[in-house]
Simulated scan of single mutants.
Amino acid sequence: MNHLLKYRRLLVFILLPLIFSCSRRNLGYFSNYGEEKLQTEDITSKTTQPIIQAGDLLQITVTDNNPTAAAPFNRITLSNESSGNTSYNAQDGYLVDENGIIDFPVLGRVKIGGQTKSDAKISLTNLLTNYLGNPIVTIRYLNYRITVVGEVNEPSTFLVPSERINLIEALGMAGDLTIYGKRENVMIINESNGVRTVAQLDLNDKAILDSPNFYLKPNDIVYVEPVKARKDQASLTRSNITLVLGVISAASLILLNINR
């Protein structure tokens, strides 16, 4: 009987590392929001317009009460000359050079780098009033994209036609995090005007909804770091499989000894 008690204690001692190695992780988002069914709160974070920088590809169109007068200021393809209809070729974008300058029809070299789209519209409109009676400028990004990599199901680079996307939407486009994604440390990498910034956000914390980095900027990189379990635990794989096999072997030896 003493031998049986001894073997049971030994078996418990062997199983303890396995039990504690399978620690629970919080896989939810915004888990500190509470249990209220409906919550309302003021939104403190506001989306900020991205700054135009070198390498941006922009579609800029100019309209006026007199379409004929506005035509020289557009890179256009005539679709039906007899009817006067025109269509804008999205491929004819304006590439912002390393000095923040674009080559604009008639106006020549115009610096818009370092400005928001709203500021650039005002700058171009002011220049165009020397030629047109009521110029209206429209600016769109042709290369507004974000990249999501790391522990997500579908890592990729995504074009964002709406020019507005937040972190959760980006993760959704990438198929969400895998179970090995470290939700406590999702990194957002941004390079702008020669400066690289890395923000670390915790998806478990509702505070990220008010973070200035919650809404992504053009060319942002979202990196989801793997948890340590991905390397040495991986949910009863690799090291844990070895541990389980060891436990099974030890338990088998104990049972054999008991049966003798």
Rank of each mutant, 00 (worst) to 15 (best):
Y144F: 11
L159C: 02
A207S: 09
E184Q: 12
L128D: 12
N85D: 03
G93F: 13
T116W: 07
Q200F: 14
N204D: 09
S87R: 07
L132E: 02
R145E: 04
L209W: 13
D103K: 07
E98C: 03
L124A: 03
D92A: 10
E163G: 01
V152D: 05
N143R: 02
Y94V: 03
I139P: 05
A170D: 05
G108P: 06
L209I: 13
N99G: 13
S192I: 14
L124K: 05
I102F: 00
D103T: 04
E98W: 12
G181Q: 10
D202T: 11
V137K: 15
L107C: 01
K111M: 02
G181S: 05
A199I: 05
L128C: 06
L201T: 14
D202L: 06
S162C: 09
L171M: 05
V198Y: 07
D205P: 01
E151D: 12
G175W: 10
K117G: 01
L177S: 08
Y180M: 09
Y94F: 08
G114F: 01
Y180G: 07
K117F: 13
N185L: 13
T138F: 06
N204W: 03
V149Y: 10
P135T: 06
I179V: 11
G113R: 00
Y141V: 00
P155Q: 05
E151C: 09
E184G: 12
V106K: 11
R164K: 04
M173L: 07
T129S: 02
Q91I: 15
Q91N: 14
N185P: 15
L132T: 09
Y88H: 07
G150V: 15
L167V: 04
L95I: 03
E163A: 00
Y141C: 00
E169N: 10
A170G: 09
N130H: 07
G172C: 10
A199F: 08
F158Y: 10
Y131P: 04
S156G: 10
F104T: 02
Y131E: 05
A120M: 02
I188C: 02
A90W: 10
Y94G: 02
F104Q: 13
